[in-house]
């Protein structure tokens, strides 16, 4: 339904997207996940025909977004990031305009249906400019689904909503996604595992992973993160730990309680068990191993691993209770 191949977008010298490829099947909800500025919005703007790519191509429902822009636009519903709406219009008048612009037949019924589906029917005659952020978001959604498009492109559909509205909106997207293809962007991880069939993780304009939410979780199922507290010179200890086989990443944090005591967070590569080798290395060097805990990586940790390219040397660990349980899952 959606095919993106080798998409590159440059703004002057700045590369926003670099060789991005992914696809979405009919009836699939695809999540574009990535930190702010990763290129999610640029991808969506290209898919909707708002701007052309610098190179590469994208096809929606079999039509090229550049050469067959009109055919693509007839088949999509788009919710841009900041929900730009005509604030001087009433909800009904605005949706009526969208219905005309999209050449919807049976305009009145369609507008009523969309207001109903997006739960703005009781605000039909309110002026958009006076609506809360949550209601504007719903009007934006109503606008996107209005012409019953085959493809929905939603840029951060739950941004700025309160928890109840987020749940409602996710339910709405899920129900809409049954017959349609949906691409949505988000930087909220649980959202992806809750509503998406598949996830494409974008970082700095490049695809760093493409998988199902379960697949992503499985990827890290064996992987563990080790938290240790050690008395000794932190730089030397960090270097020693990084040199160990099976260690993917080491984060150093100050303050394990006491002078010369530091905390380290160590990520293992794959499902390597690094506990014993870490412990013996520290003891062999004559440093004081004060605490060691291991816990499995969460989806958040995977996301961080994939999207932070350089190792963060300094981090402030959350205060840990002195007598922490040994195993945390």
């Amino acid at each position: 339904m959606i095919d993106v191949t080798h998409l590159t977008k440059q703004y002057g010298d700045r590369v926003a997207l670099q060789d991005v490829s992914f696809h979405a099947n009919r009836g699939e909800i695809l999540g574009l996940l990535g930190p702010n500025g990763a290129g999610k919005s640029s991808t969506m703007r290209i898919l909707t025909g708002y701007m052309p790519p610098t190179s590469g191509s994208a096809r929606v429902a079999g039509f090229d977004v550049v050469t067959d822009s009109m055919e693509v636009r007839r088949r999509i519903g788009y919710l841009p990031e900041n929900v730009p709406l005509y604030t001087e219009m009433t909800v009904r008048a605005y949706l009526d305009f969208v219905a005309r612009a999209k050449q919807v037949t049976q305009r009145e019924d369609t507008v009523e249906w969309a207001m109903d589906a997006a739960r703005v029917d009781h605000m039909a005659d309110a002026i958009i400019g006076r609506l809360s952020k949550g209601y504007r978001q719903r009007v934006g959604l109503a606008q996107a689904i209005l012409a019953d498009p085959e493809v929905l492109i939603l840029d951060e559909p739950t941004a700025g909503l309160d928890p109840n509205q987020i749940i409602e909106t996710r339910q709405l997207i899920k129900s809409l996604g049954r017959e349609r293809t949906v691409i949505l962007s988000t930087h909220i991880l649980p959202e992806v595992s809750m509503i998406c069939d598949r996830v494409v993780i974008i970082n700095r304009g490049q695809v760093v992973a493409e998988d199902t939410p379960d697949g992503l979780a499985r990827r890290v199922a064996g992987a563990e993160r080790l938290s240790i507290t050690v008395r000794g010179p932190d730089i030397e200890i960090g270097d020693a730990l990084r040199g160990l086989p099976g260690v993917a990443r080491v984060l150093v944090g100050a303050g394990g309680g006491g002078v010369g005591v530091s905390r380290f967070e160590i990520d293992a590569q794959g499902d390597a068990d690094i506990r014993e080798v870490v412990a013996s290395t520290i003891i062999a060097a004559g440093w004081g191993l004060r605490e060691m805990r291991s816990h499995s990586l969460s989806l958040e940790d995977v996301f961080l691993q994939l999207t932070t390219s350089e190792v963060v040397e300094d981090f402030q660990p959350l205060p840990v209770p002195a007598m922490a349980p040994d195993e945390q899952v």
């Binding site: 708002y50 009109m70 636009r73 999509i76 788009y78 730009p84 005509y86 604030t87 612009a101 999209k102």
Partner: peptide, 14 residues
């Protein structure tokens, strides 16, 4: 300035 042009230009209008 309000960004509404983005939606307008992705409607099926030339």
């Amino acid at each position: 300035s309000t960004g509404t042009i983005e939606l307008l230009m992705t409607f099926p209008l030339s």
